[in-house]
Design a protein around this nucleic acid. Sequence first.
DNA 1: TTTATTTGCGCAATCGTTGTCGGTAACGTT
DNA 2: AACGTTACCGACAACGATTGCGCAAATAAA
Lengths: 341, 341
Amino acid sequence: MEAATLKDIARELNISVSTVSRALRDSYEINPETKRLVMECATRLNYRPNPIALSLKGSSSKALAVVVPQIANYYFSQAINGIEEVAQQRGYDVIIFQTHETYEREVAALRQALARRVDGLLISLSSETSTVAHLQEFQQHAPIVQFDRVSSQLATPRVVADNFAGAYAATEHLIKTGRRRIAHLTIQPWLSITQERLAGYRAALEQNCLAYDETLVRFGTFGPNEVGPLVDELLALQPPPDAFFTASDRLAVGCLAALRQRRLRIPADVSLIGFTNLTVADMLAPALSTVEQPATDIGREAVARLLDIIERKHRAAPPATVTMPTALHVRESTSLMDLTP
Amino acid sequence: MEAATLKDIARELNISVSTVSRALRDSYEINPETKRLVMECATRLNYRPNPIALSLKGSSSKALAVVVPQIANYYFSQAINGIEEVAQQRGYDVIIFQTHETYEREVAALRQALARRVDGLLISLSSETSTVAHLQEFQQHAPIVQFDRVSSQLATPRVVADNFAGAYAATEHLIKTGRRRIAHLTIQPWLSITQERLAGYRAALEQNCLAYDETLVRFGTFGPNEVGPLVDELLALQPPPDAFFTASDRLAVGCLAALRQRRLRIPADVSLIGFTNLTVADMLAPALSTVEQPATDIGREAVARLLDIIERKHRAAPPATVTMPTALHVRESTSLMDLTP
DNA sequence: TTTATTTGCGCAATCGTTGTCGGTAACGTT
DNA sequence: AACGTTACCGACAACGATTGCGCAAATAAA
């Protein structure tokens, strides 16, 4: 059973294809009786408009592109979950691209998305991306909404977690539990989220009369075996840090592993808090304090914005930034400092 | 800058569209010199064939559909990672659908996929799915490869983990560490993976002269708060279980939480092993023994099979089953039984 | 009755690409 | 000189849907 087309209906009813098309779109210039016949026949033949033909015709492809650095990542898989949910609800399909954190693959992904004539793009920038010419080029064809890793050079709506507030809360919490030398392990310095978190961290320090010490802050793209050496470096400082604040899932887990490997007691020797979406955070040893980002909601919100632009044809979209609240979860890894020697 | 089309090249060179088309496809009936000109012009205009037009023409859409119950799931996000990687390498885009474990959304997803004229389908069945008519229907249009949750009623290649061996190894390991009353928490009984794991569990028991006790086996779709009561039920048995073997990520974590909440010592009172893809398994408290499935490899293998069928046009694909080895990771949660009272 | 106007529908172009067919030279063969 | 080959290229239709335009018939207004 092949998919029914307008032509099939037209043949069946001995009318022209154009009449069928108009009847289905409820055009005023079609006889109500004819409409009824066409509708009936369409449901009988289980007619569905061919999205490919529609795309070619140039109207809309009913498909969205999602470009993220990685799928196999707690944060992004949750975000995509939210995106797919809302998109599907509103009749759009989602095409996924991974950049694996490279600029090159990001460009390739955009090219693909363009070729597919997607109606819009949701993107979280790769860590290599520092220019946005490729995105501006894309923007001339379809609207973009950025989420999580966003660039301010690009005029689009942005949906992000409240990174400043989250980092501020985490840092302040560490200070209130008696920590004074707080190391911050974070990702590439040019990313918006890195800067915002760093700013929050710094603001909390200064609000609490602690000096900002840049030797305590480390940036990087930390592979599986790169966190250990870094932790060693930090621990060699005088005085050594008494707390670690990490900026991603990978870093939190890597740091936890490194600290445990080095037989440091958490939180007795150092405390640890992460910016993560680990659902198992409270099952870790020790239970990991975290700043949780509403990843699913960020996905939902981002795609909702995008679809509003697409459907209301607000081409000149308000490049507003939506900030979603983060939540501080205090667990064992940041208990009060043990002051007994 | 709009995307260049054949027409643009044709106009530029004052030749016909068909000639351009053939020149680019390196047809024998085009003058080498003309070909050169066309090629040069094509690269200059940055021409890319329009996949939409190609799809409409009926040849191939260069897109694959992936249908999974959930994206935000350690196992599936890793599998999709593998799928996307290989697909992208071989020039195919991936369209993702989530069924949220419902038959209805699975049918809807297949309909969408069909409308998009995808060249093939990778599917892991929803837990509600018991009939495969919708898949057979789909099969008449494009090839299917099943992975993980597969149905034997459907003649397609299948790529799965070695569930029997994995479950056997886990169970045997529990027995060798002194356990005798091994509970098995698993998912819906009609799923292939459930049955295979159950069979492996049972075989290991019987090989070791332990009776299979069906009151120790529980099936279900365990929501966030459903694991607790179940654990209570099992612990009320006489004698109570001294080990838990769970069949999924969610169950392993849920069970761990429930046991800890009830102040049972792991592994002193009970030991616990999961069938999971948790990357943080050895960071949990206690470090969780697991049977690890090669999710990424399963994804890679499945998509490779599918693309082979698509490209070699082996429509009558060998419905072979590829079994990928699992790995037993012994950690703290299944240490030797403590025999001191 | 003649002229407007409305109603209802079909024709044909369009989107980008490919396949079928046919045509025109230039050449070689008798 | 007449014919067949070969090499090369263009016109056209088709995929499925939308849309501007035109055309006929029916109705309304003159």
